[in-house]
Computed example of a mutant assay.
Amino acid sequence: MPVATAPLLDDPFLEASATTPAAGEPHWAFGDDIGVLPRIFDAEITLAVMTRRLDAALQANIAAQLGSERGISWHWRGGVGQALADDLAAHLPAPAEGAALIDDIRIVAEAMAYLFDTDTIGVRLRTLEGAMCPRFHVDNLAVRLVTTYAGPASEWLPESAVERAGLGAPHPGKPEALRDPAAIQQLGVGDLALLKGDGWIGNEGRGLVHRSPQPAPGERRLLLALDPG
């Protein structure tokens, strides 16, 4: 998964421009090629998504993991080489049917490391039977990549649908964070999504507002999240 189609910035957490988008302008970028992901460096972009469909081998691997009674809660912080792949294989409930999944995660991690010019990536792979973060919220970190391998994918809001004064823990008198329920957007299964948070320099108070969806009864999600550095 080469990402050499776009240059890296000297500092991966600084915007390419000091401008901010005009009210109502899109702050997201979608495409079916890896070249869309570096759009996250644009000042106005808080969501960059490579849309994709999972191939048959990968879907079979995912089904094999979810078919086990044992869930997955795997964490890794380090390089993106063979050690990552070996550690993941040791933690899969069905490692004999995990080659395609391991390869995909390693490729995504390598792309993340290249894009943000880092030797260290934090990776989490988890099965979830409930909403991990059910309220709309903003991450305080700089950026995170998420992809849903199975189950409902993450939901997000365009800025026009957000009342930021309502974000955070609820309390009496606090407004609703969601202005327009009809404006809720949802990623697709397999999509690679870079979410810019409030911790990105110059993006304070503009982090992408998103939440975890609630799976249907008996449904399990398989979620991958990666953080650079």
Results as ranks from 00 to 15, higher is better:
115 L>R: 05
115 L>Y: 03
116 F>A: 00
117 D>E: 13
117 D>H: 11
117 D>N: 13
118 T>V: 13
118 T>D: 00
118 T>H: 00
119 D>R: 08
119 D>P: 10
119 D>T: 14
119 D>V: 10
120 T>P: 05
120 T>R: 10
120 T>L: 11
121 I>Q: 01
121 I>V: 15
123 V>W: 03
123 V>N: 05
126 R>M: 10
126 R>V: 13
126 R>Y: 13
127 T>V: 09
128 L>Y: 08
129 E>K: 14
129 E>V: 15
130 G>N: 12
131 A>K: 09
132 M>V: 07
134 P>G: 12
134 P>K: 11
134 P>L: 11
137 H>R: 03
138 V>Y: 02
138 V>S: 00
138 V>L: 04
139 D>Q: 13
139 D>Y: 01
140 N>W: 02
141 L>M: 06
141 L>R: 04
142 A>F: 11
142 A>H: 11
142 A>I: 08
143 V>N: 00
144 R>D: 11
144 R>C: 13
145 L>F: 09
146 V>S: 03
146 V>A: 05
146 V>F: 08
147 T>S: 13
149 Y>V: 05
150 A>D: 01
150 A>F: 01
151 G>M: 03
151 G>I: 03
152 P>C: 00
153 A>V: 06
153 A>W: 02
153 A>I: 03
154 S>Y: 04
155 E>H: 02
156 W>H: 00
157 L>N: 02
159 E>Q: 07
160 S>E: 15
164 R>V: 08
164 R>Y: 06
164 R>F: 08
164 R>G: 03
165 A>H: 14
166 G>N: 14
166 G>C: 13
166 G>M: 14
166 G>L: 14
167 L>E: 09
167 L>R: 03
168 G>C: 11
169 A>F: 14
170 P>L: 09
170 P>G: 00
170 P>I: 09
171 H>P: 07
172 P>G: 13
173 G>L: 11
173 G>A: 13
174 K>T: 00
175 P>L: 14
176 E>I: 04
176 E>L: 11
177 A>K: 00
178 L>I: 14
178 L>K: 04
179 R>I: 12
179 R>K: 15
180 D>T: 13
180 D>V: 12
181 P>D: 09
181 P>L: 06
183 A>I: 03
183 A>W: 03
183 A>C: 04
183 A>V: 02
184 I>A: 00
185 Q>D: 06
185 Q>H: 12
185 Q>S: 15
185 Q>N: 12
186 Q>N: 13
186 Q>G: 03
186 Q>L: 04
186 Q>S: 15
187 L>I: 07
187 L>H: 14
188 G>H: 14
188 G>I: 01
188 G>M: 04
188 G>L: 05
189 V>L: 11
189 V>Q: 13
192 L>C: 05
192 L>H: 02
193 A>Y: 01
194 L>Y: 07
194 L>V: 04
194 L>E: 08
194 L>G: 00
195 L>P: 06
195 L>E: 06
195 L>F: 15
195 L>Y: 12
195 L>S: 10
196 K>Y: 06
197 G>V: 04
198 D>T: 08
199 G>S: 10
199 G>E: 05
200 W>H: 07
200 W>S: 00
201 I>W: 08
201 I>C: 12
202 G>K: 05
202 G>L: 08
203 N>L: 09
203 N>Q: 02
204 E>R: 05
204 E>H: 07
205 G>M: 02
205 G>I: 08
205 G>S: 07
205 G>P: 02
206 R>Y: 01
206 R>S: 07
207 G>I: 06
208 L>I: 14
208 L>A: 10
209 V>Q: 03
